[in-house]
Write a protein that binds this DNA or RNA. Sequence first.
DNA 1: TTATTTTATGCAATCGGTTGCAAACAATCA
DNA 2: TGATTGTTTGCAACCGATTGCATAAAATAA
Lengths: 346, 346
Amino acid sequence: MAKKEITIYDIAKQLNISPTTVSRGLNDHPAINIKTKTKIMDLAKELDYRSNKFASNLRKQSTNTIGVIVPKLDSMFMSSVISGIEKIANNAGYNLIISQSFESEEKEKNNAVTMFNSRVDGLIVSLSNQTKDFNHFKTFIKKGVPLILFDRIAEDLPSTKVIIDNFKAGYTATKHLIEQGCKNILHITSDLNRNVYKDRFEGYKKALLDHEISYKPELFITNDLSESAIIDCFKNDVLKRKTLPDGIFITSDFAAALAITTLKQAGIRVPEDIAIIGFNNDLICKVTEPTISTINYPGKEMGESVARILVNHLKGNGDLGITNTVVLNTDLVIRKSSLKKNKNKT
Amino acid sequence: MAKKEITIYDIAKQLNISPTTVSRGLNDHPAINIKTKTKIMDLAKELDYRSNKFASNLRKQSTNTIGVIVPKLDSMFMSSVISGIEKIANNAGYNLIISQSFESEEKEKNNAVTMFNSRVDGLIVSLSNQTKDFNHFKTFIKKGVPLILFDRIAEDLPSTKVIIDNFKAGYTATKHLIEQGCKNILHITSDLNRNVYKDRFEGYKKALLDHEISYKPELFITNDLSESAIIDCFKNDVLKRKTLPDGIFITSDFAAALAITTLKQAGIRVPEDIAIIGFNNDLICKVTEPTISTINYPGKEMGESVARILVNHLKGNGDLGITNTVVLNTDLVIRKSSLKKNKNKT
DNA sequence: TTATTTTATGCAATCGGTTGCAAACAATCA
DNA sequence: TGATTGTTTGCAACCGATTGCATAAAATAA
């Protein structure tokens, strides 16, 4: 199959010098004569030589590789994050190994083992919703491999964390609806096992409390926010209720878009009858009718931020302690789906 | 930093057996006594042993790693593809190294070199629009590393290719608009340098020809299909024309969605005044008003297909010759944005 | 011309598994 | 009991680059 590989020994032999010199020449070592270097480089190019990273890594005990484990790759948010990570990591000379846990603790564990054996220099993780045990990550910490969690984190895992203030975001979104005159705000969200959704939920409750609206369990729904789940939840539950909510805070823009579509089909006006606010600020928000108000969650910046912290740490410029938490800003993006008042706003 | 690593030698010493036996035991070699195996496994676990992939790869001359280079990660289509690749590759025991070319030939070249030095067992690529020279890929072919191109390919690169029939898709989309009564069909697409957009354009022209509609250059626009480009193209060009088109075939669903929004703002009805068809069958199609007719381009299946072909090839079960081309099916998905007639259809 | 730096190169050990071949031992058959 | 087969294990070479230390060669100083 593959033809014979050229090694530094082949180059050394042809040039009648030692492999040591070849290695140094290739790595631009200062002690090597410039003419020798040129000879080495030239021959290397001519022979299509490629350095064997495994031999090199084995000897140097470092891999220049960063591992990434996320629940799923196929969402706009996650692909933005990954894109941001890749950009920074690649510029800093790191390779990226990426895998998905598909929301399964089992798979996450397997992926972690692989990353561990691949000896990634650092690991970036967004947790699966199912994960309750963290031993597969503690192994990294034990060995001194830096671990960074983002978005879906676990408080009690001693690692750097990059998150948004989900509580505040939930609070802000809910408060906005309240300010639009909503009294019966339905909150649709996902698995409370993880910080993201739980904190938003807490923010939602706090906003109600602060505005003297009592929390009603029937105005709280969790599901996986998939297309079928959302449609089912509206058609078989929400729309059949005798009193409809007058506002909905739903933690996904796509789900919000589906909600709008479903409600409109049922003859309900958005935002007049029901005001809606989503989450993430996905592109989709701009093209629905009405456009969707949402919380801007900057995925790409989060990815870049995560990667930058890790790279700095790996290069030894890390001022960050290992258990620091970085909180990125989110903003309320007001569009039409939530505007019961001030109809003239953007 | 990192604590001392446990090696098979440490295990061997503690168990008073040879490293050979430890290695075999860890790899479940049939010649090793089951009791010995158990002893080895137990101690390995107890000591937090992890296999050194570099030593192993170095000796075995294979990496169990697949490289992926794509123009950009942050689109729904691409993240679906990647998700599909990861799923298959991971199940087959391969790691994935991913990088982005950001549509730059330069970056693509650098990424290829890195992948080459990382000795990926196989390489999966969707070309950047800018790429005109393919020497950085020929290196792989020379060394016998399987190369698979998908979506954005180059005809003259001898590798396996996984694509859709872009010509047919373009033809189908255009024909559908014609059948809806459109006579002046605007085609908005991206860089003709690559097969994808060029073939769709050819399909568009052929459909016109077959229906005795002459091709008019002013009804053909290329740009990068970004939000700003689309909005600009409508506000400063299309909407200012004295005769508006009565149909638009635009090769991106998001762009189609923006087009609809912009047209509606200008008081033009979709599909009554202008019928629109997009491309990809993104989630977004279902939540706009009207919903968007499109060509279904199955990203996830494409990713799975690509990975499956490569994995089979690597495992030696590849029946596929190295220059075969796999063409995946696409279908016309009719929603509301294109329906001038039969308004009662889905 | 001899002693001292400076510059350039090489020796040999090392990183940690893997594997062909041989050997030790136990089990089965005549 | 001796011969044959099968089961386990170990020896030692190997994969290819890196690096501390030593040395040769050239340049400079004395």
